[in-house]
């Protein structure tokens, strides 16, 4: 089991990348973390169950957020490749709105080379809290 976290909260807007900078694991996993950019490089000969929990203070209390995993070229990993977004849509008690998913997953037996967690929708200058974290199960194929 691998845990990837933030050492401090981070200010972020839509289009930004969560800059994870801490990897915790008892031994050295096959994947690696770029502690400057938050990019996670995956091993091609492993399967991965990756789950990011989102903890954010929105700069606007009437705003929504969406986070998704992107590949090294910046493309959102589609659901057909095992990419699942975390999507929370604001609505009031008196109005209808879709319910939420609060974690962003990437579940694959054919991993792309590297991934980053991107804020697809987020009000400007929101705060990504240290409660935002990723756990990863790395599986031998």
């Amino acid at each position: 089991m691998i845990e990837i976290t933030l050492s401090a909260s981070q200010t972020l807007s839509a289009g930004g990348i969560v800059a994870f900078d801490t990897l915790s694991c008892e031994t050295t996993p096959a994947l690696s973390l770029n502690t400057s950019t938050g990019e996670i490089t995956l091993a091609s000969d492993k399967s991965y169950y990756i789950e990011a929990s989102i903890d954010v203070t929105r700069s606007s209390t009437t705003s929504s957020f969406e986070f998704a995993w992107i590949d090294s070229s910046g493309t959102v990993i589609p659901i057909s490749d095992g990419g699942f977004d975390a999507n929370w849509v604001f609505h009031t008690i008196s109005s209808a709105g879709p319910t939420s998913t609060n974690v962003a997953n990437y579940v694959t037996n054919s991993p792309t080379s590297a991934i980053r967690l991107k804020a697809i929708t987020l009000s400007a200058s929101s705060t990504i809290l240290q409660g935002t974290r990723v756990f990863i199960i790395e599986v031998d194929q």
Binding site: M1, E26, G82, V107, E138, D140
Partner: peptide
């Protein structure tokens, strides 16, 4: 301490 990084499984799926 943390659980070792690699588990043995047949596959992940969605």
């Amino acid at each position: 301490s943390y659980i070792p990084p690699t588990v043995t499984a047949e596959a992940v799926f969605s």
